[in-house]
Amino acid sequence: MKESRRKFLKIAGVSAIGIGTGSVLTAFASSGSKEEKAAQAAGARFKHRAESLKAGHWGMVIDTRKIDADLAAKIQETCHSIHNVPGIEGKQELKWIWPSDYKHVFPMQTNPYVSEQLKKAPILALCNHCENPPCVRVCPTKATFQREDGIIMMDFHRCIGCRFCMAGCPYGARSFNFRDPKPFIKEMDPMYPHRMIGVVEKCNFCDERLARGQMPACVEVSKGAILFGDLDDPDSNVRKALRANTTIRRKPSLGTSPSVYYIV
C-alpha cells in the first residue's frame, strides 16, 4: 500500500516536473518562477553547490596595461580549450575572447593622438554581460537570457539559430556554428560540452567554473591583469580597482551598461 502510494506520488511529481520545465505539454503557459514552484511542489529539490561562488552582479575589470600579446594569446587559448571552442579560420570563425586593438574595441572613443602604448596594446574583447542586454531583448526563444547575478547565458538546448542576437549585439561578441565544430576541436575538454551545428555561442563568464568555486579561466591565467568580482559589493576587488583607476566601458552611449570595464 505504502509502496504504491509512493509510486503514485512519484508519477504525479514527474508529470509536474515535465510540466514545469518546458516539457511540451504545458510549456506554453510556464514562466520562470512558476517553474521553480512547480518543481518544488513536486518534491524535487535543487541546490546551488556549497562551494559555488555567488555575487549580486558579476563584473570584470581588465587592466589593459598588464596584458601583452603573449598573455592575450594564452588567455584566449585557455578559454577556447576549456570551452571546446573550435579553431575555425576565416570569416566564419568562432571566438569567446580575443585580442583586438584599441581602435576596434573602442571605435568611437579613439583619437589620432592616442598613446603609443594603447595603440599597440592587445585589447581583449569578449561578451560584456551588459546590464541592459540587447541580445536578450531580441531573442525570440529566451535562449539567451540574463541570470540574477548578471551573467548573460546561452541555452544551447533552446537556440534556434536565428542569429538575431548577433545582429543585436553591439560588440560583435557572439559567434555562430556555421558548421559542425567537432572536427575543429583539437582536444576535447570533457568537463564542458561542445556545440551542434546551428547555434550561437559566446563567453559565459565561466559559469561552470564559478559553480565549482573557481574563478573564470581568463582571470586565473591573467596573472592579475583581469579582476573578477561582485559589482554590488563595495568591498569587492573589482569595486576597489574601479575606485582606484580610470576605467572605460565599450560604447557607453548605447545604454547597454556593460559589466566589463577596461583600465586604460
Partner: peptide, 9 residues
C-alpha cells in the same frame, strides 16, 4: 499512447 510516452511513463 500519448499519456504513456509523455506523462505517466
Amino acid at each position: 499512447g500519448i499519456l504513456m510516452r509523455y506523462v505517466a511513463k
